[in-house]
């Protein structure tokens, strides 16, 4: 980004002195791409650097707000010894289940939305309905589930009134079930949106051609639609899995504190002013994200590679 600028200043520096430098800098600053690079620089300084610094802190010791400048794996050893790695496993399981539910329901829904939904109005309505959740207060809409699922909540009260049950169903609230239920809804749009956009780009003629050549709908789905929608599916899985893994609101409100999730742990560590420990967990969350992204990218590369070989096999 600055190489161009440096090049220009270097070439002028031999001919003239400070004035030339100044003129070159002014010319670069007045170009329309300068704000983008300047903003990107500030962005990196303000956003990317904190992430790196936190990873560094997780390798140091901290006493309250004071940093002890000695390298130590103390924070990570703590995680293993205190049995908190169980929290990582539990969170990954929850995130995996929620993501799977969103994928299994979201992919066909996106496909229907693009290829089958009859009226433009309906598509727009659904699209709108899936955009609005990004702008709702997460704690307020989660809190209400307590009034629905609790032992005196809507569902239990209704079932008791209808004499379908004698005692309230206890596992509805403060259980894995309520956590999953609270997470599936808000993150469903994260899955549907990328897949929707990917399917939107698939040409109808390709699908028609596949049908004309005698492929069953299932074969067309497997060989045409899914491979072409793969970038959207991968983006959807990452956009769902990662925020679910880091969600701190739903497990706290609907989990009942009996079972800890990753975000609960980060919050309790930070409340206890164990910032090195919190940083270690934040770093673990980021690493898991990076691994997930890398696995998917590799998977995709191998798939395109395999398809390339298959294509060559057909033409040979």
């Amino acid at each position: 980004m600055t190489s161009e600028f440096l090049e220009r200043t270097r070439s002028t520096s031999q001919a003239g002195g400070f004035a030339r430098h100044f003129a070159a800098a002014r010319e670069w600053l007045s170009s329309e791409r300068a704000p983008v690079y300047i903003f990107a620089f500030i962005w990196c300084l303000g956003v990317i650097v904190p992430v790196i610094i936190s990873a560094v802190l997780s390798l140091l010791k901290a006493r309250g707000l004071h940093i002890v400048w000695a390298v130590s794996l103390h924070a990570y050893r703590d995680i293993v010894e205190s049995g908190r790695w169980e929290v990582v496993v539990r969170t990954l399981t929850a995130a995996g289940i929620v993501t799977a539910i969103c994928l299994v329901t979201g992919f066909p829904f996106a496909l229907w939305l693009v290829k089958r939904a009859k009226s433009q109005k309906l598509t727009q309505f659904v699209f709108m309905a899936l955009t609005v959740p990004f702008f709702l207060d997460p704690s307020a809409r989660t809190l209400v589930w307590r009034g629905v699922l609790g032992s005196t909540g809507l569902i239990n009260a209704a079932l008791m009134k209808l004499h379908l049950i004698d005692a309230p169903i206890e596992w509805l609230l403060f259980s894995d079930f309520s956590v999953y239920l609270g997470l599936v809804g808000p993150y469903f749009p994260n899955m549907v949106m990328p897949i929707y956009l990917a399917i939107l780009l698939i040409d109808n003629e390709l699908i028609q051609a596949s049908a004309d050549l005698g492929a069953t709908p299932a074969a067309t789905l497997r060989n045409i639609v899914i491979p072409l929608a793969m970038p959207g599916i991968i983006a959807g899985v990452i956009f769902t899995f990662v925020p679910v893994m880091g969600d701190s609101i739903v497990p706290t409100i609907l989990g009942g504190g009996k079972k800890e999730y990753l975000a609960d742990t980060v919050m309790s560590l930070s409340t206890a002013m164990n910032y090195a420990g919190a940083a270690a967990f934040a770093t673990i969350i980021l690493m898991l994200t990076a691994v997930l992204a890398a696995v998917f990218l590799l998977f995709r590369q191998r798939m395109t590679l395999a398809r390339g070989i298959a294509d060559r096999g057909i033409t040979a």
């Binding site: 983008v36 990107a40 962005w43 990196c44 956003v47 990317i48 650097v49 904190p50 992430v51 610094i53 936190s54 802190l57 901290a62 707000l65 940093i67 990452i238 956009f239 990662v242 925020p243 893994m245 880091g246 969600d247 701190s248 975000a263 980060v266 919050m267 930070s270 910032y275 919190a278 940083a279 934040a282 969350i285 980021l286 994200t289 992204a293």
Partner: peptide
């Protein structure tokens, strides 16, 4: 790469942004 850097917060859980910003600006 610029677009990727700008869209990065979409794939970083909120809690990580919160704790990282706190550690960097408050502690460092």
């Amino acid at each position: 790469p610029l677009l990727a850097a700008f869209l990065l917060p979409l794939v970083v859980p909120g809690i990580v942004v919160g704790i990282d910003v706190f550690i960097y600006y408050k502690m460092f």
